[in-house]
Amino acid sequence: MVYLRKNVDMVKGGKCFKFEPLWLSKEECGEIVDRSWKASLEFCIDRKIARCGEDLSSWARMSFGSIKKKIKETEARLRDLKEGAMDGATLEQCKNLSEQLDSLYMQEDSFWFARARANKLKDGDKNTKYFHHKASQRRANNRINGLLDSNGVWMSQRVDLERFIEAYFGDLFETSSPTGFQGALEGIEELVS
Rank of each mutant, 00 (worst) to 15 (best):
M1N: 12
V2H: 11
K6Q: 07
K6E: 04
V8W: 09
M10N: 11
M10H: 09
K12W: 13
G14N: 02
K18L: 13
K18E: 11
F19L: 09
P21W: 09
P21F: 07
L22I: 06
S25E: 12
C29E: 02
C29Y: 07
E31D: 13
V33N: 00
R35D: 02
R35A: 03
S36W: 00
S36G: 02
K38R: 12
S40W: 02
L41M: 08
E42H: 11
F43I: 03
C44P: 03
I45D: 11
R47W: 03
R47D: 06
I49Y: 07
R51F: 10
G53D: 00
L56H: 01
S58N: 15
A60S: 14
M62V: 15
M62W: 15
S63K: 13
S63Y: 14
G65I: 01
G65Y: 01
K69F: 09
I71R: 03
E73P: 00
E75G: 02
E75I: 04
A76F: 08
A76I: 05
R77D: 08
R79F: 08
D80M: 10
L81S: 01
K82A: 03
G84M: 06
A85I: 14
M86K: 13
G88P: 00
T90F: 04
Q93E: 05
C94S: 04
K95M: 10
K95V: 07
N96C: 09
L97A: 01
E99I: 05
Q100N: 07
Q100D: 08
L104D: 00
Y105V: 00
M106L: 14
Q107W: 05
E108R: 10
D109M: 08
D109K: 06
A114V: 04
A116M: 12
N119F: 14
N119Q: 14
L121I: 13
D123C: 12
G124T: 04
K126T: 10
Y130G: 00
H132Q: 14
K134C: 02
K134F: 02
K134M: 03
A135E: 10
S136C: 15
S136V: 13
Q137R: 14
Q137I: 04
R139Q: 14
A140D: 09
N142A: 09
N142H: 06
I144Q: 03
I144G: 01
N145T: 11
N145F: 11
G146F: 03
L148G: 07
L148Y: 10
G152N: 08
W154T: 12
M155H: 15
M155C: 15
R158I: 14
V159Q: 14
L161N: 05
R163V: 12
F164D: 08
A167F: 08
G170Y: 03
D171A: 09
F173R: 07
F173H: 06
T175Y: 06
S176Q: 12
L185T: 05
L185F: 05
L191Q: 12
L191K: 15
V192L: 09
